[in-house]
Design a protein around this nucleic acid. Structure first.
Length: 402
DNA sequence: CGAGATTCATGTGAAGTATACCTTTAGGCTTAA
DNA sequence: AAGCCTAAAGGTATACTTCACATGAATCTCGTA
C-alpha cells in the first residue's frame, strides 16, 4: 500500500511539469557569463591583476563589502578570465580559492597551509606534522616551477578572528623566500571594520590595493533577478510582483543579491512541490522562513556533541523564562544534561569559549555585561526565530539521545 | 552627599595535559637467490 | 641478503583543563559639608 503510494509519488513527480528550466543558475556556486552592475570593480581588479600575465607579481588586493555584493563572484570571474588568457599564451598562473568560513577547513595556520598545498596537488595529513614542515612542503611545490600564484582568501576575517593575524603576515612574507614563484593574495571580507583590529604591518602588506563593493540597490537587484530568472525558469511561471518582492526583501538586507537569488530559488521549489504552475507572493514569505530554518538547522546538526548540549541548555532556559540568560545558569543546566546522557562535562572555562563560538555562528547573541555588584557575565539570547525553536529542540534531543 | 573602596560572577590569558595522529627507525620475519 | 611489515620512539596540532589574574558597575564605607 505504502509502496504503491511512493511509486505513484515518483511517477507524479516525473509527469509533473517542472517550473525550472535550469535550476543551477540560481545556485550560489553559479558564475554567470556576464556580470551586471559590477563593471567598475571587475575592471579595477583586472587592472591590478594584469601584471601577472607578464609574470610579475600583482599587488595584494583587499575586497570589502557586505555579503552578497558580488565580491566572491567578481574575484572568481576575473581570475577565471585571467587564467583563460594565461592558458592560451602558456603563461604559468595558478589560482587558488579558499573559503575560510567553511567549518574546519582553514581555521588555523596549519590547516590553511595544508589546504593550500592540497589544492596544489600534494596530500597533507590532517595533523601530526610540524607547521614548519608544512611550510617547507608548500615552498617546495611553489618553487617547483616559475609561476604566479594568486590566492583568494574568502571570508578572511573569520580566519583572522580565529587564528590571529600572524598567518597573513607569514603568507605575505613567503615571497621573500621564493625565487621562482611569487604569490599574491586577494582577501575578501564582509566586515568593514575588520582591518581596524589587525596589525598595521599586516594591514599595509595585505591591502596594497583595495576595492570597495557598494550594496546593490533595489533596481539593480531587480535587474539581476530578471536576467537570471529568465535562464532559470520556464516562461511565465513567475507571478506578478514576485521579482519585485524578492529584491525588496534583499534590499532591506543591505542589498544582498545572494539572498535574493536564494529566495527566488526556494520559492520556486516550494511552488513546484505544492503543484502550482506559478510562483506567487506567498511562496516568497514561505521561502524566507524556510531558508532561515534550514540555515540554523544545518548549523545545529553539524555541531559537535558538546556544543549541542550547551545549546540545548540555552534553549531549555529560554523556553522556561523570558529575560536574560547568564553563563552560570547555562553551565548548571548543561552539567545536568551531560550527566543524563553520560557525556563528560567540560569545565566552565571551556563552556565560556563554546558560548563564544555559538555566538560567532550566529545562533545566539552573547554580550558581556557587568551586573555591578553581582559580577559580570554574558547576557545570552537566542538568535533563532521562535517558529524554529521546537524543531531545533527536537533535533538536539534526538541527536543527543535524550 | 559623593569619592573611593569593595565585591561579585565570570571573562580572559597563559601554561600545562591528554589524545590522536604523523614520520622515522629498528627489529623481526619472509622470501628468493 | 634483500624486502617487507610491525611496533616503538619521537614529535606535532588541537581540544581541553588548571591556574591566576582582570573587569567593571552596583553597592558599601566613610569623611565631609
Amino acid at each position: 500500500m505504502i509502496e504503491k503510494g511512493i511509486t505513484g509519488l515518483f511517477e507524479d513527480f516525473l509527469n509533473k511539469e517542472s517550473l525550472f528550466q535550469e535550476k543551477k543558475v540560481l545556485q550560489s556556486s553559479y558564475t554567470p557569463s556576464a556580470i551586471v552592475h559590477r563593471d567598475n570593480e571587475i575592471k579595477q581588479l583586472a587592472n591590478i591583476l594584469a601584471p601577472a600575465l607578464r609574470v610579475d607579481r600583482p599587488s595584494n588586493v583587499f575586497l570589502y563589502g557586505k555579503t552578497g555584493t558580488g565580491k566572491t563572484l567578481t574575484a572568481r570571474y576575473t581570475t577565471a578570465k585571467i587564467l583563460q588568457v594565461a592558458e592560451q599564451r602558456n603563461i604559468p598562473i595558478t589560482i587558488l580559492y579558499l573559503n575560510c568560513k567553511l567549518n574546519k577547513i582553514a581555521d588555523t595556520e596549519y590547516r590553511l597551509i595544508a589546504q593550500l598545498s592540497r589544492d596544489l596537488g600534494k596530500e597533507i595529513p590532517a595533523t601530526g606534522l610540524p607547521t614548519e614542515e608544512i611550510y617547507k612542503v608548500f615552498y617546495t611545490i611553489l618553487e617547483s616551477k616559475k609561476q604566479i600564484v594568486i590566492i583568494i582568501l574568502d571570508e578572511i576575517d573569520q580566519l583572522v578572528k580565529k587564528a590571529g593575524d600572524g598567518i597573513i603576515y607569514n603568507l605575505t612574507r613567503v615571497n621573500s623566500e621564493l625565487k621562482n614563484s611569487q604569490i599574491s593574495i586577494i582577501g575578501i571580507s564582509n566586515d568593514l571594520l575588520f582591518t581596524d583590529h589587525i596589525d598595521p604591518r599586516v594591514k599595509s602588506s595585505l591591502s596594497e590595493e583595495e576595492i570597495i563593493f557598494p550594496p546593490y540597490n533595489a533596481i539593480q537587484l531587480q535587474d539581476i533577478l530578471h536576467k537570471r530568472s529568465k535562464l532559470a525558469f520556464k516562461e511565465s511561471v513567475i507571478g506578478e510582483g514576485v521579482i519585485e518582492k524578492c529584491s525588496a526583501y534583499a534590499a532591506r538586507e543591505h542589498g544582498d543579491a545572494r539572498r535574493a537569488l536564494e529566495l527566488l530559488r526556494v520559492a520556486g521549489e516550494l511552488a513546484e512541490r505544492a503543484g502550482k504552475e506559478k510562483i506567487e507572493l506567498t511562496d516568497i514569505d514561505e521561502a524566507e522562513e524556510k531558508i532561515e530554518r534550514d540555515r540554523v538547522l544545518d548549523i545545529v546538526k553539524t555541531q559537535p556533541k558538546q556544543q549541542q548540549a550547551a545549546l540545548l541548555a540555552i534553549v531549555y532556559i529560554a523556553a522556561k523564562r523570558i529575560g536574560a540568560i547568564f553563563t552560570g545558569d547555562v553551565y548548571a543546566l548543561y552539567a545536568e544534561i551531560c550527566e543524563k546522557i553520560a557525556l563528560r562535562p567540560l569545565t566552565q572555562r571551556r563552556l565560556s569559549d563554546i558560548i563564544s563560538e555559538l555566538d560567532m555562528l550566529g545562533i545566539i547573541n552573547a554580550k558581556v555585561i557587568s551586573k555591578g555588584r553581582f559580577g559580570r557575565t554574558r547576557d545570552i539570547t537566542l538568535a533563532i526565530p521562535l517558529t524554529v525553536l521546537p524543531k531545533i529542540r527536537s533535533v538536539l534531543e534526538q541527536s543527543l539521545d535524550l
